[in-house]
Each structure stands twice: as C-alpha cells, then as structure tokens.
C-alpha cells in the first residue's frame, strides 16, 4: 500500500480552494484596490511594462511548477517589502507605479573583471540567450513564505559575461537611487541606495538567479523591475531589487541590513530554522495566501535547497555567520 507523506512545502487542499475562490470573487476589487497603476501593468501593452517584456520564457524542468504550489499573482504583487517605496506591505504596489520609470534601464558590470561594460537590460537578456522559468520557494526573514514562478537567467551566465579576474571573490550589488520618484528614499533611515552582496562561489551556484519576470509577465515595478536577484536558499532581503550595478570585489561588501542591525542580519542570511532572529523564531513560517486557518509550516534548512548549497558552507559556523 502506498502511503503518501505530504512534503513540508505542500499546502493543504483547503487553502488552494480558497485561493481560487479569492481570484474569481475579487478580481474586480483587486484592480480597484490597487488603482490604475497596477491595472496598467496587467493590461496595457506598453508604457508601464518592464523593459524585458519581449522575451518568452521556457520552464526549466529542474525547477518545475508542479513540484511546488505557486502563490497567486495577486499576492506576489501586492505583499512586498521594497522600502524604497515605503515600509508597508501594500506601499510598493501603490507608490512604485506613480511615475517611476524602469525602462529604459541599464546595468553596469564593474570592478575586478576583464569585461567591464554597461548594458541595456534588453540587450543583456538577448546576449545571455533569453529567459527561463524557475519555480522557487521564497522565505522572508519575517517568517513568511511564498512560492514564486520567476522568469530570468542564471546569475552564473552574467558572471561568465563579466569574466572575473582571479582576485575577485565577492559581488556587490547596488540598487537604484531616485528619491524624486521613490518616496521611501526621501527618508534617509536606510541609507540609500540598497546594497547586497554574494560570495563569488555563491553567485555561480546553479540556484542564483536574476529575475526579470514572474508568471511569464515582466516584473511589476513593486517586485523590483526590471531585474532583481533571487537566491532562494537565503532570506528574501538578499534578493536586491532593481539592480543598476554589479561590482566584483576582493572583500565582502557591507549589505544594507547588516549595516543597520548587525546583531540581527548578517552577510550570509541563509535560511536556517535553527538560528532564530533575536526577536522571533525562524523554525516555522506562515504561507502567504493560505488563509486564516492554514497554520504554519516547518522551515527547511537552506529553505529546502540543502542539496544544492550545503557544500558552500562546509566548516562555517552558521550560528556565527548568520
């Protein structure tokens, strides 16, 4: 007899139904609530679409949608941490669609590399050879999680393009700076622009991904258009949005959250159910879109990507290097 043990990341049937009902019932209110800005992203052929709309993406069979239960598009695009546009979860969907332009957009590759260059995003995607879809778990340091079908390309391809010199050991990512259009940047509390970093060997790991879209659509502004980092084995804040510069360095960059609160956020930010945040537990997580009675699910080591990344951290004390 076959007894099927549900995996930790599987959602209950009841929550899936709730989601479908939610979509049908609330489509109209959803558009109303988010206002003309996001409606424009969903419906308009031009204008608000992010730069990388012209590239159809193909599912990568290694990271298929069938293995996980993707979170509804409405939730992925309305429940965001993007402090450049305010600290409320619903702020980015509102304020990132009021005149902030993500097209045209250029990305600079700089630092200890043999091929420094500045690319238009579209030219970059074309040069890389198009997009693929990967469905990844996404775990926020605030102990909630989603499943996101990303479109994009492996970061390793970008690193190959940059052609790092032997002394390059780290990547420093910098996000945009535009206080005129990004209301959150008008307050200086975070120290803009947002900065993140990876070790070079982390960056060329098969999971590290640059996303340009979700659900086959170009990234909405609130999700970090036109391109952002996705490192599914790390907490969400490592996934720097709207990148303008990637610099290769020989020392670890000081990422924004580590600079703000080094006792709470480190350089690595690997998902680790055994190492608590000083103010809350990281042992379990709430699944976005699960509804009121969905309960919590157990958080997996490296967010369930232990097989792919555990080797990167052999011999490293993860309670010290959080």
């Amino acid at each position: 007899m076959l007894i099927r043990t549900p995996k930790d990341w599987e959602l209950s049937e009841s929550s899936a139904t709730a989601e479908a009902v939610y979509r049908l019932r609330n489509r109209r209110e959803f558009l109303k609530t988010l206002g003309a800005g996001l409606a424009g992203v969903a419906l308009a052929p031009h204008g608000l679409l992010a730069a990388t709309a012209g590239f159809p993406s193909k599912e990568n069979p290694l990271f298929p949608a069938s293995a996980l239960k993707p979170t509804a598009y409405e939730f992925i695009t309305s429940y965001n941490n993007f402090y450049e546009f305010g600290t409320g979860k619903d702020d980015p969907a509102k304020y990132a669609n009021r005149g902030w332009k993500t097209e045209p957009w250029t990305v600079e590759l700089a630092g200890l590399i043999r091929a420094p260059a500045t690319f238009d995003v579209n030219a970059l995607v074309a040069k890389i050879g198009g997009l693929e879809q990967r469905v990844y778990r996404h775990r926020c340091v605030e102990a909630w999680s989603m499943v996101v079908p990303w479109d994009g390309f492996p970061l390793a391809k970008l690193v190959a393009l940059a052609d790092p010199k032997p002394e390059a050991k780290f990547l420093k990512f910098t996000s945009f700076l535009d206080p005129k259009n990004a209301v959150g940047q008008q307050d200086s509390y975070l120290g803009w622009p947002y900065v993140e970093g990876l070790r070079l060997d982390e960056a060329v790991n098969e999971l590290a991904f640059i996303a340009t879209g979700i659900y086959g659509k170009p990234l909405p502004n609130q999700n970090g258009a036109p391109l952002r980092l996705v490192t599914p084995w790390k907490y969400g804040f490592k996934g720097i949005k709207s990148i303008v510069k990637i610099e290769f360095t020989d020392r670890a960059p000081l990422n924004t959250w580590q600079r703000l609160a080094p006792n709470e956020y480190g350089f690595y930010a690997n998902v680790n159910p055994q190492v608590d945040h000083p103010r809350w537990s990281q042992a379990s997580e709430r699944v976005i879109g699960g509804g009121i009675f969905a309960g919590r699910q157990t958080t997996l080591m490296f967010n369930g990507y232990e097989k792919q990344v555990a080797g990167l951290y052999k011999g490293l004390d993860l309670t010290q290097n959080y």
């Binding site: 939610y22 609530t33 309305s78 979860k89 976005i288 009121i292």
Partner: peptide, 15 residues
Amino acid sequence: VAPNPSVLADPLKYV
C-alpha cells in the same frame, strides 16, 4: 467589504 490582497495575503497577521 473591500478585499485588499495585501491584507488577504496573511489575514491573521493583519488581525
């Protein structure tokens, strides 16, 4: 009454 997806994403947290 006026369902807000940002609230419905994790309704219990909002409450």
